[in-house]
């Protein structure tokens, strides 16, 4: 019996001739919250679309709960709650009607979970979703997801369009729910601070490949930024163990999983005259920038 809720092997996808990624493999263990991070256009939404069976990859296989994602049965779909980018919902319905609609499909529907969240919004049950603010709509979408009582939650860019208050509310609710009920979550967001509060593991994608896949705590304790001072023109650094070395005036920086000793050796071997070498750990957003670059 596998404890992998999602298992993807060698996913390859192209839009026309443009490669999105090749041989992308990852899995999401049961009870973990995994965040997929990447710059715009690296294939986050493409991955969600493939996972939900809305895009046929050019090659590779994906399974959710052991079922091929191209042929997920209705019973398994009942175990997967899906939040689409922009908190898309049936906006022509009211708070009351949409609850009634969804409840007909989900055997484990938890009406109280939905209305608990709606009561916090202080909106009338007959209020139409289309007339709500983006933040309020996000809470309706979250309420519907929580009420489904699904085993896996797939959330595509849940923070899109939300102000800090609603983002925090969304994250706190989701985190508490996932941990209390041992739910598995696969999500994407373009706001990296949100991920730091929420996810256990992360995958950081660059164009066409995965840069890193590991627990956030491990990443934050092992990935470092090194800064140092240089004078005049210096030779370029080259190593597959350092990321995005750059120099602005006399301040240089580079990122690496390697320790200080390795970086010192590297600088000496490259013949770089440096001083004031500093090593620091970072928050997830800085790690993301360090791995993917600023441009």
């Amino acid at each position: 019996m596998t404890d992998k809720v999602i298992e993807c092997k060698n996913l390859t996808h192209y839009y026309g001739k443009r490669k999105i990624y090749e041989d992308l493999s990852f899995d999401v263990p049961k009870g973990r919250i995994l965040g997929l991070l990447g710059k715009n256009g690296t294939g986050k939404t493409t991955t969600i679309n493939i996972l939900m069976g809305y895009l046929k990859p050019r090659a590779g296989q994906c399974e959710i709960f052991g079922e091929d994602i191209q042929h997920i049965s209705p019973a398994t779909r009942a175990r997967i709650a899906l939040l689409l980018e922009g908190h898309i919902q049936y906006a022509f319905m009211t708070i009351e009607k949409i609850e009634k609609y969804y409840s007909a499909f989900y055997p484990k529907w938890n009406r109280d979970a939905y209305y608990e969240l709606m009561n916090k919004l202080k909106v009338a049950p007959h209020q139409k979703i289309a007339n709500m603010s983006c933040g309020q709509r996000s809470q309706v979408a979250l309420g519907l997801i929580l009420a489904q009582n699904a085993d896996l939650l797939v959330l595509d860019d849940f923070s899109l369009g939300l102000d800090p208050g609603y983002r925090r509310l969304f994250i706190e609710y989701l985190h508490e729910y996932a941990k209390a009920e041992t739910k598995t979550i696969f999500l994407t967001s373009h706001i990296i601070q949100d991920m730091e509060r929420l996810v256990d593991d992360c995958i950081i994608m660059d164009y066409g490949r995965i840069l890193v896949q590991q627990p956030v705590a491990q990443l934050m304790s092992t990935f470092r930024r090194y800064t140092y001072r240089v004078e005049g023109e210096q030779p370029a650094l080259s190593s597959d163990k350092i990321y995005h070395p750059s120099v602005i005036r006399d301040c240089a920086e580079l990122y690496s999983f390697e320790n200080r000793g390795y970086v010192e050796r590297l600088l000496q071997e490259a013949g770089i005259g440096y001083s004031d070498l500093r090593e620091e750990t970072m928050n997830l957003e800085d790690i993301f920038i360090g791995l993917t670059g600023k441009y």
């Binding site: 209705p74 779909r77 899906l82």
Partner: peptide
């Protein structure tokens, strides 16, 4: 919304 509809069990 079609994706939501087709995702229903």
């Amino acid at each position: 919304r079609l994706k939501l509809t087709l995702h229903l069990p």
